[in-house]
């Protein structure tokens, strides 16, 4: 049984008064973002490149839900109304501009501002800090502007083609490269946009960070090192994928390279990325353990 003093608030205010503010705020968010997410689902979220968007959205909601008891506790509320409304107005402006002018960066990005503002107005700084990772994670949900994608994709494609060619050439294969076209034996392969791995990079980085956040390593060194190393890991995984496809085409012919085995190469990509992440994590553990032993 609860003590009388804990029972009193329930008598003093009906339960609906406690969750009503959240319901209204949630309704407000739904008015803004349900149309946005429906639009995204029909367009870029159904493509391979940005397919991770809905997963990131669901994970962000889950990350907030995990901290819900902490957020819901009204006795810890220290609302920051002025700062909160400033943040909300910035978010609203970004949304109106982004929604009307088709700037997804603003339209989707405004959600981070709106959720932060709601948290400040209804609860306070402490509860905002409690969900910082969910808010940060939402960055991965924002579709990159096509100008940025275009600017990064070309150099990455060239680099992937260059490394794949160099490695296979050193291994003695009859391979030559012109731009992003690889010639091996009698076959010619064009390294496509997807092979650049820009989106693989973002998906892997998002999943890697989620892994780190959930596992909660105490060592900051290991966290930061792994988060940074995901970038070269993703690049290496893409090189391995392109080399796999090249060799499949070389030994089994064009049909195999473009058919079933093309999808298989995608799995090679994620498996090799996973293996590289686990391997790197293991090496980091050994290294930091040795460092600690030396320090002791």
């Amino acid at each position: 049984m609860a003590t009388p003093s804990e029972n009193l608030p329930i008598l003093a205010m009906p339960r609906w008064q406690a969750w009503m503010p959240w319901l209204l705020a949630g309704l407000g968010l739904a008015i803004l973002y349900v149309p946005t997410f429906i639009g995204l689902a029909q367009t870029i979220w159904s493509t391979d490149e940005q397919g991770h968007g809905p997963i990131v959205l669901a994970l962000s909601v889950w990350l907030i839900y995990r901290r819900w008891p902490e957020i819901y506790d009204v006795s810890a509320a220290r609302p920051r109304v002025v700062v909160g409304w400033f943040v909300l107005l910035v978010g609203a402006l970004l949304y109106a501009l982004g929604r009307s002018q088709d700037i997804l960066l603003f339209e989707v990005g405004s959600a981070i501002w709106m959720v932060s503002g709601i948290m400040l107005v209804l609860r306070g700084t402490r509860q905002l800090k409690a969900i910082w990772f969910a808010l940060f994670f939402m960055f991965f949900m924002i579709p990159l502007p096509s100008a940025v994608v275009d600017a990064l994709t070309q150099p990455m494609k060239l680099a992937v083609s260059y490394v794949a060619e160099s490695v296979l050439y050193k291994l003695g294969f009859p391979i030559a490269r012109s731009g992003v076209v690889l010639n091996i034996g009698q076959y010619q392969l064009l390294v496509a946009d997807a092979c650049a791995g820009l989106h693989t990079l973002f998906t892997l980085e998002a999943l890697g960070l989620l892994y780190l956040n959930v596992v909660r390593y105490s060592s900051a060194f290991r966290n930061i090192a792994l988060a940074i190393l995901i970038v070269p890991i993703s690049f290496t995984a893409n090189v391995i994928r392109v080399m796999t496809l090249t060799l499949v085409t070389f030994y089994l012919g064009d049909e195999a390279g473009q058919g079933f085995l093309h999808g298989f190469a995608g799995m090679v990509l994620f498996l090799s990325a996973l293996a590289l992440i686990v391997g790197t994590d293991g090496m980091l553990r050994l290294y930091s353990a040795r460092r600690q032993r030396r320090a002791a």
């Binding site: 608030p9 003093a12 205010m13 009503m20 503010p21 968010l29 009204v74 109304v81």
Partner: peptide
Amino acid sequence: LRAASTSRSLVQSVLLLVLCA
């Protein structure tokens, strides 16, 4: 205190809904 902050939250959340709409 809790009742006061809850009713303040309620007012704020109505304003929030208006802002979103």
